[in-house]
Each structure stands twice: as structure tokens, then as C-alpha cells.
Design a protein around this nucleic acid. Structure first.
Lengths: 244, 244
DNA sequence: TATGATTTGTGCGTATGTATA
DNA sequence: ATATACATACGCACAAATCAT
């Protein structure tokens, strides 16, 4: 949590949109009104509005004002959050079960695409990692089978109870803030684990979301793979055509 | 194309990153150097860098500089572009075949999720639209079956040859700039058309990307559905954890 | 049609704070 | 400690789009 002015204003406005105080389709107060209300400069207001715009919460219309567009939630969404963090914002009961916890070697270069990520210790590009496999349940139904490869060189420790704790929170507390990720979504054939845990038929398709998660200093901290039942998969995002 | 200073600088820097003049892993010149090189104020430079950062092309590190991260291309990517526009940037030969061209009524409220989009003319929420179905081929292989529902009330005319022309370009020339879209990715069972055109087996899974495409004034201009062979589907995007 | 008021967009300058080396 | 580099914040001027008169 930052205490920047524009971020505080951003959160206040985002909250007022989420709770309907600023209703969808209506205009926000003008930048000059907001400037007076928050007693800041116009540039500070504009930074807050830009952040809302980039997330698709408002649309700025030249000469008119800022229209409230609405809000989009989902379990699998463009936000860079861990399951534990998303679960905290859901009403439904959620559960994580540890199903794997091994020391392995991985080659991050082979994580995207359809190659094998786990390699021999002496393979070129091999890095030591801890593999944590967790089955995620919402409303007591399995929704995803997650495997995180935590790079030991960057993240030397792990939470005491990996099933209960947010990996992201642990990394940010013990190493450095998580900053960004490259994400890949593909489809593949269900394997035995998918069949066992996600209760999908062998050989049918499952959705695979892979992420390379980086710290603020661009160091790669972990690889994560999430396998989902295609019947439950729905991914929503907001995309813009232009910078401005 | 805008002729704003910061956008020109953005494009110049993006181009130098794409062509390797600024190599991955290296630092860009400092904001002060860039300010001198382009003979603009520091804020203008910072706007250009912010745009690069938001697209995952650079990472700004406080007190150090801006590291070049790299570039990510793909046929199905987070950019809001039509197939014709993406095809223009590919080396491979591409082709579009018109397979459908009908007048229908749609209910945009029913476009996301798993409901029927095409409704009766007198249904509540029904809007007139032209359905344009096109089979897209790359390297003479079918890659996607696209259906665009162009809302007649907003876009009254259509290009003369819908198979060859970019719908997006036509909308922007005759109506208003396209600004943003809500996108949904799901999976469903292949139907007869998928089997015929995409050459996938009946009943196996296909990827469905649906988009609601809006103009700068927030009017909904068209609905588009893209159905893809899951074996060829790979979607890559860049996501950030924080605003700053 | 034209004009002025309002609102957002772009650009510049300056000052201060904070992180890095 | 000092210099460098990025981050935040304020203020100002003018351009461009919109709308009511």
C-alpha cells in the first residue's frame, strides 16, 4: 500500500465506482471539481483518472468528462494475484490442498510452449526450485490444479504451511515486491493428475495458464502453472486500442 | 496516428527496442539524456516511458534506470486489432474467405456467457445487425472462424468486400475511432461449422474469444466471436501487479 | 452560424523526495 | 557524502472537443 496522493484518490474513486456511489453510465465530477474536492493539483487527479482508465473502469471523453464503465471480476482474470488473494475477495468458501512438495530443477526458458520444464540438474539453464502443487477448491468443488516452481536462488525460504499461505505474500515479505508477469494460456490433453484431481476425463482438453513472475528488479522469482477444467473456464479482460 | 510529441517518442523508442538498437537487458538512456536528445521536457519523456512500461516493453527501476524487457507478438494477443491488421504484420501468407453474410437481430446482453446471441426481432434488447462470417487462413491452414455482428444502428454501412477489408478500418473511417473492448475467452464443444471449417473433430473442444468493441464515446459498435483450434491456440500477455 | 463557457489533452518548468551506486 | 536517476506534486499556458446560448 502506497500513500501517494494520486493512489489514495485512485482507490477512493475506484471504491466509489465499485459501491455504486458513482453509477455506471454517469459522469464523474470534472477534473477541476475533483481537484477542489481533494485539494490537490490537477495533474494528481489526472494520474488517478489515468489508472482508472487503464483498468477499464472509466472512459475519458474529450470535452465532456469521464464516464463510469463498470467493473469486471472473475476467478481467472488479468490481475496479477495469487489464488489466496483472490479467494479473500470471494464470498464462496475456498480451500487449498497440498498435493506435491518436491525439490526439482527447472529451465525457465522451456516453461512456455510445449516443452518439459523440469530438467536434469546438470542440464544447461537448469535452476534449483521447489515444486509446490496445490488443488484449489471453491464451494467444495475442484477448480484448478496449481503448480508453483519457486526458484531457490531468488526465494530461499518457503512458508511453513504452503497450503494455507499466499506464496506472493511470502515472496514480498522475505525478498522483494512482485512487479509483473508474462502469462500464457494454452490448451492441452488432460493427464492422470488432471483426471484425478479436477475430475475431468482422460484425454479431453484442459486449460493451462502459465506465468513467469518477476520482481521489481526484473529477477525471475517463480514459475506458476494453473490447470483448469475447460467447462468452468472463463477469462475476461479489458483491452484498449490506443495509448490515449 | 497522432502527432503528439510523447507518442512520436514512444513509437521511436518502441521501434528501437523491436529492432534491437536498445537490446534486451540493457538500460535505456536516462530520462535526462532522452530529454536532451529529443529536446522536450522531462514529463514528455516520462509519458513515453510510461506507455512502454504499461506494455511490458521496459521496467523502470527507481534510482537506476529503465531496463529493456523485450517484445511479445502473437496471432491471438491482448492488442485490440482485427485479423486483417495483424495479418499485415506477419510474414506468412494469409487469407480470408467469406462464409456467412446475413441480417440478424442480436442481444448484446446475451453475448458473454453461454446464451444465444441471435434473438427474434421482437425480443427485449434485440438490435439489428449484420452477421459476417469469415474463415481465416495462415499459410493456407485454417486458424480461426470469425463471426462479426455489426450493429446496424451504429455502423449503417459495410465495406464492399467484407472478406478483404478490415472491419475496424471501415468503422473508424465511416463512424468514429474504436477505443476499447471487453474480451472473454472460453471453451466449448466443436459444432458442425467448426468441424467443417477448422477441421476439428465434432464434440472436441474449441477456444472461443468473444469481444464487445466500443467507440470513443462508449457506444457499442460490434460484437465479434473468434473460434480457434485448441491445438494452435496460445495467448500471451503481460500483467502488472501495481499501478506504479 | 457563431460565440463563450466548460472540460479534457498536451507540454513546459520547477521543487522536493527517495533509491542507487 | 556526493552525484545520478527516477517519483511525486504543483502551477501555468494553450489546444481541442463539446455544449448551451
Amino acid at each position: 500500500m502506497n500513500d501517494n496522493k494520486y493512489e489514495l484518490i485512485y482507490r477512493d474513486l475506484a471504491n466509489k465506482i465499485a459501491t455504486g456511489i458513482f453509477a455506471v453510465g454517469n459522469y464523474l465530477p470534472s477534473e477541476n471539481d475533483l481537484r477542489r474536492q481533494y485539494a490537490v493539483s490537477r495533474e494528481t487527479i489526472r494520474k488517478a483518472l489515468l489508472a482508472l482508465r487503464n483498468e477499464g473502469k472509466i472512459q475519458k471523453i474529450h470535452g465532456k468528462g469521464s464516464v463510469v464503465l463498470g467493473t469486471r471480476p472473475a476467478l481467472t482474470s488479468p490481475e496479477l494475484k495469487g489464488f489466496t488473494e483472490i479467494a479473500a475477495s470471494l464470498d464462496d468458501p475456498t480451500n487449498s490442498r497440498l498435493v506435491q512438495n518436491d525439490s526439482v530443477y527447472v529451465d525457465p526458458e522451456r516453461f512456455f510452449g510445449r516443452e518439459e520444464t523440469i530438467v536434469r540438474a546438470n542440464a544447461p539453464g537448469a535452476q534449483p526450485a521447489v515444486l509446490i502443487g496445490r488443488l484449489r477448491e471453491v464451494r467444495h468443488q475442484p477448480v484448478s490444479l496449481d503448480r508453483d516452481y519457486v526458484l531457490t536462488d531468488i526465494v530461499p525460504t518457503l512458508p511453513d504451511d504452503p497450503a494455507e499461505t499466499s506464496l506472493y505474500a511470502h515472496v514480498e515479505e522475505t525478498v522483494a515486491p512482485i512487479s509483473y508477469a508474462e502469462r500464457e494460456i494454452t490448451m492441452t490433453q488432460a493427464d492422470w493428475d488432471d483426471h484425478q484431481f479436477l475430475e475431468v476425463q482422460l484425454g479431453t482438453s484442459v486449460v493451462v495458464i502459465r506465468q513467469k513472475v518477476y520482481l521489481t528488479d526484473t529477477r525471475l522469482a517463480l514459475l506458476s502453472e494453473s490447470r483448469l477444467d475447460p467447462r468452468q473456464f472463463h477469462y475476461r479482460e479489458f483491452v484498449r486500442r490506443h495509448l490515449t
